[in-house]
Design a protein around this nucleic acid. Sequence first.
DNA 1: GCCAACGTTGGC
DNA 2: GCCAACGTTGGC
Length: 206
Amino acid sequence: MVVKKVTKTAAKTAKKAAKPSAKSTKPAAKKAPQSMPYDQGKWAHVYTRVKGERRYWLVKSEPDVFSFDDLEAAPKRTTCWDSVRNTGARNFLRDGMKLGDLVFYYHSNAEPSAIVGICEVVREGYPDHTAWDAKHAYYDESSDPEVPTWFMVDVKAVRKLAREVTLPEIKAEPALSEMALVRVGRLSVVPVTESEWSTVIAMSER
DNA sequence: GCCAACGTTGGC
DNA sequence: GCCAACGTTGGC
């Protein structure tokens, strides 16, 4: 699949960084990807599920880079969630998200920042080819296609929320006080619990 | 293996 | 534009 849009939250800053000194800004991962299982660590629970269980997630994107409307307008209302270059988020993409899981679509750096829509995982973790595309803004020269470091999933738009649920509302809601979105900054993919999921949905409907 | 320097995310 | 939080890198 060809990716013409440079994607998601990463992209804007990527362009910025790519211009001045094409290659110098390369963070990233020399170590081989960590392997399953995650039986310890604070996110261990999100990698296990009872049979048939559906889990919930949230992905962030800057709306002027790739908004929920853009996703709804995309072919098959689907996109690959590429360019994530953070190992924690990578682990969720590679090992956490499963077919049929539901995902909140969050607009970051927006006015206001808010959860605006719902999408669904339609393809499970697979290598993010942009990592070894030397022309891509998020090219990672240390990433070996034989042993991929970075992964992505495909997500498909399900529907827009009846009303967006803004970050201030989320922060003001006691039932959401433990949400990874607010407890852990800077992660572009985070887990959402089932109760957080229902709380946000309910907020969007009143 | 510690930790200082540095880079990035993203709210404000 | 500022800066808090925190991941990553590299010197030692």
